[in-house]
Amino acid sequence: MHKNFKGVDKTVFGRGSFDQLGDILAPRRTGDDPYMVFVVDAYFKGKPLAGRLPAEANDRVYFISVEEHEPTTDQIDTLRDEILAQQGLPAGVIGIGGGSIMDIAKALSLMLTNEGSSTQYQGLNLIKKPGVYHVGVPTISGTGAEVSMTAVLTGPVKKLGLKCEWTVFDQLVLDPDLIASVPRDWWFYTGMDTFIHCIESENGHFNNAYSHAYAEQSLALCRQVFTVGQNPETDEKLMVASLMGGLSLTYSEVGVCHALSYGLSKILGTRHCYANCLIMNHLEDYYPEGVAEFKQLAALHQINLPQGLSAEWDDDTITKMAHVSYNLPHMWHHAIGEDWEQHITIDGLKDLFRRL
């Protein structure tokens, strides 16, 4: 069975395009109480961007911190219940922030129309009803969450996305001005998420001409960005590279780095893009050329990733991480092949974590 995925319906790109958001939302404000829910990274609270939100009197604005942990199923369920209890079903959800905020907005849109806990929908095509209209406005580039059909959530048992065609945003607003203030280290970590997406997409069994075309162009843009540095021109290129990298993995798959990253994030709460960088630094066995280039770019930007982290982890912690990573068969199938279970073991994964 070939993949048949839905794309984002509409995308506006360009400097200053954020100011069109109010006009984009206006036709959706229909009915007796056509209110919108804005989910905004808490980083922007009290900053100029917060004052530019096209929020009307009855809209709800949530400033959500993603510094402490990535989105959780409990967080989404609680937010959904509060919104429905106080004002009923909104006309739309707008996510403004990085990958975690994108995932919160996508998941919230779905859970506003689907009953029960989001834990029961972690997986492929488990959602029963389409969500409400939702818009993504990325303020940091690299995760590809703006175009992916997955809203990744950490639950009590697993870290796994709500994945279906209804997860995909109805509208994107890609304004390169919004990513200009990203700190240099996180600019690198999130940008390298795109780079890693493409390396893994290309080096696996599900790679195809369609996914390759996006990965090839995304990698070309990444190289232009990271051999130069952060400036207005490279901000535009990174924003497009992120989108193309996300499309590449959608039509292919991610691999070893992301599987291990899920284990690190689920058990220790390590933020996704940073976890990917920590792990990619030690995967020469799987992606020799990609890891060599990754290390060159890290050195160029004076990014010093810590070593010896595993010395602080006991065997029980490492075993838990290995089990989370092992239980992602779609990633291992892509990276290793149909017979991946003959090559990937819990003990082998524990050895990989001990490299960190």
Score class of each variant (00 low, 15 high):
L126M: 01
T139F: 04
L108P: 06
V135Y: 00
G31F: 07
S148L: 10
V132I: 10
G31Q: 06
D74G: 15
L162R: 05
L89V: 13
R28N: 10
Q87G: 15
H134C: 10
Q120G: 07
T154P: 08
E146K: 03
K159E: 05
S65V: 11
Y35W: 09
I96C: 10
L112I: 00
G155F: 07
P156E: 14
L84K: 06
T73F: 02
L160E: 15
G99W: 03
G144F: 00
V152T: 13
K129T: 15
T113S: 08
K159Y: 05
L153A: 11
H69E: 13
T72H: 14
D59H: 06
N125T: 03
D32W: 07
A151D: 08
F63P: 00
I140L: 13
G46K: 05
A85H: 02
I76N: 12
V66L: 14
S141H: 12
D32A: 13
I140M: 11
S109W: 09
T113E: 06
N58V: 12
K158R: 04
V61F: 10
I101Q: 03
A57E: 15
T78G: 10
Q86S: 14
D77W: 00
H134I: 08
P48S: 12
V66C: 14
V61E: 07
M102R: 12
G136R: 03
D33R: 14
I94M: 01
K45T: 12
K159Q: 00
G46C: 10
F44L: 10
E82V: 08
P130A: 05
G97N: 11
G46R: 04
I94N: 12
G123P: 09
E70V: 15
D103G: 14
G46Y: 02
V135N: 02
G51I: 00
V137I: 08
P138F: 04
V152L: 12
D41L: 00
Y121R: 06
V135T: 09
V61K: 08
H69V: 14
P48I: 11
I127M: 02
D59G: 11
V147F: 10
A57K: 14
T72E: 13
V39H: 04
M36S: 09
I76Q: 00
S118Q: 03
G142N: 01
G155Q: 09
A85N: 09
G88K: 05
V40W: 02
L53G: 08
L126Y: 05
N114I: 02
L84Q: 03
G142A: 07
E68F: 04
D77T: 00
R52T: 13
E68M: 11
H134P: 15
E56L: 13
G97T: 13
Q122S: 11
L124T: 05
Y62F: 11
K47V: 03
L112G: 04
D81I: 00
L108T: 08
G88P: 12
Q86E: 15
T113R: 04
G161C: 07
T139K: 01
P48D: 08
R28M: 01
G155R: 12
G99K: 05
I127R: 11
K45P: 11
L49Q: 14
K129E: 08
R52G: 14
S141W: 12
Y35I: 08
H69T: 15
I76E: 10
L79Q: 07
K128T: 11
E67W: 06
Y43Q: 09
L84P: 03
D77P: 01
V37I: 01
G46L: 01
A57V: 13
L112E: 00
P54K: 05
S117F: 00
C164S: 14
L110K: 02
V157P: 02
G51K: 04
